[in-house]
Amino acid sequence: MQPISKDHSRIRGAHLVLLVVLAAVVLLYPLLTAKFPVYQRLGALVLLYAIGASAWNIVGGYAGQVSIGHAVFFGVGAYSAVLAYHHLGLPPIAGVPLGVLVSVLIAAIIGVPTVRLAGHYFSMATIAVAELTRVMTTTSDFLGGAQGLTGPTVPRSVLDLSFTSSLPYYYIFLAVLAGVLWLTWRMETSRMGFYLRAIKDNERAARSLGVMAGRYKLYAFMLSAALTSLAGGLYLTMFGFIDPDSGLGILISVKMLIMAALGGAGLLFGPLIGAAILVPLEEISNSVLGGRGAGLTFVVYGAIIMIIARFLPAGLLGLLTRLFKKSAAPGDRDAA
């Protein structure tokens, strides 16, 4: 068994080096791009979307329940933050706990009946609830209707988290992303992570061994909802504005889903990699193609999603891992 363990330690060593390099680049990125505020902003956006996509990954990737309505949690987070400012004069961040609470509640309302059913029901229910919320928001004066609501334009204190530079946002988002990934990793290596993997592989077999499949899927969904809501609150602090389309539109859900799926659904760093590819792509296509480019971007997104589904269900990271393991341990794939 000598060669296998050698391969193992080689893989582990390579992982470690890769992680350290990656961490250094991520930490120093805003300083390296200090002269180019556009790139700083891009970096902050990548991290923000990576938070949302990583949150989606908990239920979509790890629990295998494909939510197409995560915008509802994102929107609830963003709206709670802006409402705290608009109606109570508090810093937007003060609304985040409420947003998290409401999101978990909505997740329970969708999740309790659907986690027992086939996965399609879950996906449809998430779409329907997100659309329902969007339409209701458009007709509500309290929520600013179709015009949306604006956060603090001039920061009153540092608690408003309203900065002109993208640098503070970058590090705030990085810290939150690290927290989200840490939580995901803890979940992955806990009993719950093993249960979720068993459920995804074969739900009937897992149930027959006494795994409460529905309960763990629901927990994953509620955790995912809470973290997505947090991403929504952070979005508001950076953009200072929210309306039904930018907070609750189906495209918000699509972005979280496609980033996680492209990078690798069910893999810890998959969503971050997906965000690092797709956020710049979208910014470039929007600036090159202008307003009409928005449509084309999503034509390309649709094509990418189909290609992932057909050829790359494990995402780019899944593909890389497979190739890497193949080359590290030729003919010994199953052992690795």
């Binding site: 979509g60 990737g61 295998g64 494909v66 197409i68 996965g119 399609h120 996906s123 995804k200 699509v254 889903l257 799926a261 659904a265 999503f298 034509v299 997104y301 649709g302 094509a303 990418i304 999603i305 189909m306 290609i307 992932i308 589904a309 057909r310 269900p313």
Partner: peptide, 15 residues
Amino acid sequence: PMLAQILGTFGLALF
């Protein structure tokens, strides 16, 4: 897997 099934036709929808 379920993920691929749902993503596939949903990608078609977006397209």
